[in-house]
Structures are given as C-alpha cells and as structure tokens.
Amino acid sequence: MADNVTHHRITSFFLVGVPELENFHCWIGIPVWLLFMLTLLGNSIIIATIKLEPSLHHPMYFFLCMLAMNDMCLTSSAAIKMLGIFWFNAHWIDFDVCLTQMYFIHTLCIVESALLVAMAFDRYVAVCIPLHYSTILKTSLVIKLGMAGMTRAILMVLPCPLLINRLPYYTKYIINHAYCEHMAVVKLADANTLINRAYGISVALSVSVLDLCLIGLSYMKILQAVFRLSSQNARSKALGTCVAHVCTILAFYTPALFSFLTHRFGQQVSSSVHIILASVYLLLPPTANPLVYGIKTKQIRDRVLGLFFPNKKSEF
C-alpha cells in the first residue's frame, strides 16, 4: 500500500501559514485583513479620483492608475488565501490552484517593477525635457509601456509553473509558507530541481538589477538637470514632483531586498521571520502607494478632500 502511495502524484498542498506561530494565526489575520481592506479602499479612491478629475488626465496619473489596479490584484492574489488559513483553517490548496496563485503573484510583482521604471521615465522627461513632455509621452506610448511591462512579466514567469508541473510530487505536500511561493513549492519535488532554482533566481536577479539600474539612471539624469537650475525654488519644485515616486520605490524594493537577503543568506533567521517578511513585501507596498500619492500629490489630495469635505481645501 505504501508503494502505491509513493507512485501517485499528489493533488493538493498543505499551506502551513506562519510556522511556529500557528497559535497566533487568528491575531495575525487582523493586520492582514486591515492591509487588504486599506489597499482596496485606497487604490479605488485613487482610480476614481483620477477618472473624475480632468486635470489629472496626464501620463503620470495614467501610470498611477495602472499601479493601483496592479496593487489590488497583487494583494488579492495573496491575502484572500492567507485569511482563509489564519481565520478558517483552510490550509489545503489544489495543485493547479497553487501554481496559478504562484504565477499571478510573481507576474504581478514584475509588472509592479516595470511600472516603477515607466514612472521614473515619466519623471525624467518631465524634469529634463519638459518642453517635449506632451509630444514624447503620448497616451499611445503610455499604453505601449504598460503592455510591454505586462508582456515581459507574463513571458518571464510562464516557464516557472511549466517547469514545476513536470516535476514528480509523491511524498512531500506541506508548504511552510502562507502562500504558494516559487521556491517553497520547488523544494517539495522528489527530483533534482537545479533548473527550477537557477531559472527562478535568474529571473529575480535580472528583473531587479535591470529595473533598478534604469530607475537609478533616470534619477541621475534628473539630479543633474535639477542642479543646473539657478533658482532654489525651481530646484525644490522639480524635486518635489519626484518625492511620491521615490517613496513608492523604497516601499516596494526595501522589503523585497530584506526578504531576498534573509531567504538566501539568513540561515540563522527563523522560518516565521522569513514568511512575515515575504508577506509584508506583498501586502505593505500596495497599501502605502495610495497613501503616499494622496499625501504628496496636491491635485489628488485636493480632489479627495473635496469628495469628503466639499467646502475645505488642502492647506499643505
């Protein structure tokens, strides 16, 4: 009977949640739910505000709408299952559903990175060559940049579930994670997974290095242009248009960097810390982005205040 079991491919996985903290799952679910709700609410307000305010119909805000929609999809892909685990003990997940969740999470993360690059390019054009802004960043180019980022993500992540699907899974089915993360699933296979691990790491490194280099190059050009301005007021105004985007970059890449470093080099770090950092990477940036842009962008701030307090204007 044992032989029969070992030769039948498993059909589902068991997601532990946060290892070593199972007794606190009910409490862990509260911040997850709050971040999920704030993400949906905040990004919905951003999208509605940009749609309703004609003065915001510019490339910068079109990219922000794309970012908001991507953030809602990214958080939903992870948070719904997390809440099922933490509050309803819904630990089991079908094999194909697990691969689907993994595919969407990693694809949307790469799309997020691509949108941050596109927004850096938008800021570069606005600060360095403002007279040509409207002729360069036309709506057609904005759509093309968005589609290029999505196509890159789809094609780069697609081999991951395909490579996993060809692996044998006979005995191991417990995933020590709160969602179906690529390496956590690969480790359970009863076979050599060198190709899977190498491909996963190469995708993560190539995307992060390339995108950060492009963002860094954009901001080097922006700083050069800003320091050539003679007026201190003009410098402050130019840099002020980039503050929200810089905060968004830090909110996205900082937890990603900590998660990557602890996962690869933090052997002494407990598995619960690994899982919490990985979850923060997915849940915190989508919550922070609408708050950052709502506070730092006067047009959005005034419009939102106008919706809730019609007779009050922003004083900041």
Rank of each mutant, 00 (worst) to 15 (best):
Y173F: 13
P285V: 00
F227C: 13
I28E: 01
P159I: 05
P31L: 06
H132A: 09
N311Q: 14
F95G: 10
M102F: 04
H91W: 04
P161F: 08
G42V: 02
S12H: 15
H7I: 11
Q267H: 15
L21F: 14
G216C: 02
L64A: 02
Q299G: 09
A2K: 12
T297G: 07
R166S: 15
M72K: 00
A198D: 15
I105S: 00
V16T: 06
D3M: 07
L212H: 09
K221T: 08
N43M: 00
Y170E: 06
S279C: 06
Y124F: 15
F95Y: 15
G266A: 02
A48P: 03
I175S: 01
I276S: 02
M60N: 10
H106Y: 07
S270R: 13
V111K: 00
L34F: 09
N89Q: 11
P54T: 03
F24W: 12
F308N: 12
R264W: 15
A191R: 07
H182T: 10
F95W: 08
A118N: 07
H106D: 05
Y281M: 10
L115E: 05
P54A: 08
I275L: 10
M183C: 14
S231W: 04
L56E: 05
L137S: 02
F252P: 01
H263F: 11
M69K: 05
H177M: 15
D96H: 08
C109Y: 06
M60W: 07
I175N: 02
K237F: 10
T75A: 00
S140F: 13
A256W: 02
L167D: 14
R166T: 13
A118C: 14
L56R: 08
S231Q: 05
M183N: 12
I174L: 09
E53A: 13
I143C: 15
S55G: 07
Y199R: 06
H177L: 07
E22F: 11
L291W: 02
Q267P: 12
I129R: 09
I47F: 01
K138H: 11
A256I: 00
G266P: 04
L194V: 14
K51H: 06
A120N: 04
N43H: 01
L250M: 15
I222V: 12
